[in-house]
Simulated scan of single mutants.
Amino acid sequence: MTSSAQRPILRGGRVAWQLTQTLWVGAIWVTHFILLPALGKMGLAPLLIDEIAGFMRPLMVGFAGVCALLQLLVIGAALGRGCWRDLRTQLLLLVVVTVAVVFALTRVAGTEYLQLFGYLVVAFAGLVLILQPRPDEG
């Protein structure tokens, strides 16, 4: 393969990386720190807000897990076998494992505080991931 044949692959990976990262990290932060508090300020009943949060948080966590898996594929293609030592890969693995634990807790225990903790772990791992350079930059 020539370098011109590899460029579209890298550009597609760059676009996929930025798009998925923007979507899942933005969705997690907007849902928890903007949408749900705004519903409270509008005067909605706390039980209704809890019901909306109970629906939206697992949806956002699942979406974050799918996007993190896609980002793992992109970083694996960009860095090859050395990707396991990279902080971005470790953060994405943290997100995937946390998503799995959150869904396991939902099925087994249904504990709201541990689910919220997992949600915040995903949110802050995404925030740290945003501060890292793209795989094609580093």
Rank of each mutant, 00 (worst) to 15 (best):
M1S: 06
M1I: 07
T2L: 04
A5P: 00
A5T: 12
Q6R: 12
R7E: 12
R7A: 08
R7Q: 15
G13N: 15
G13H: 14
G13V: 06
A16R: 12
A16S: 13
L19N: 13
L19I: 10
T22M: 05
L23H: 12
W24Y: 11
W24S: 00
V25F: 04
A27R: 05
W29L: 09
V30F: 15
V30Y: 15
I34W: 15
I34A: 15
L35C: 03
A38D: 10
L39I: 07
L39G: 07
G40L: 02
K41H: 02
L44E: 11
L44Y: 06
P46T: 02
L47R: 07
L48Q: 09
L48D: 13
L48H: 04
L48S: 08
L48N: 08
I49P: 06
D50V: 01
D50T: 03
E51D: 08
I52H: 06
A53R: 09
A53H: 03
A53G: 11
G54T: 04
F55C: 02
F55I: 08
M56F: 09
P58K: 03
P58M: 01
P58G: 03
L59H: 11
M60L: 14
V61D: 00
G62A: 04
G62F: 00
G65M: 01
V66Q: 09
V66H: 03
V66P: 00
V66E: 08
C67G: 06
L69R: 08
Q71S: 07
Q71K: 01
L73T: 06
L73G: 06
L73Y: 08
V74C: 12
A77R: 13
A77Y: 13
A78Q: 14
L79C: 07
R81K: 14
G82Q: 14
C83Q: 15
C83K: 13
C83S: 07
W84K: 11
R85Q: 13
D86C: 04
D86V: 11
R88K: 10
T89I: 05
Q90D: 09
Q90T: 04
L92W: 11
L93H: 05
L93C: 13
L93A: 13
L94E: 08
V95M: 09
V95E: 06
V97L: 06
V97Y: 01
T98M: 00
V99N: 01
V99F: 01
V99G: 00
V101K: 00
V102Q: 02
V102S: 00
F103H: 06
F103N: 02
F103K: 02
T106Q: 15
V108N: 02
V108R: 01
A109F: 09
A109W: 15
T111N: 14
L114W: 14
L114Y: 05
L116R: 08
G118H: 01
G118S: 08
Y119C: 00
Y119K: 02
L120T: 06
G126P: 13
G126N: 11
G126T: 10
I130A: 07
L131E: 12
Q132E: 14
R134V: 11
R134F: 10
R134E: 15
R134N: 14
D136R: 08
E137C: 03
G138W: 07
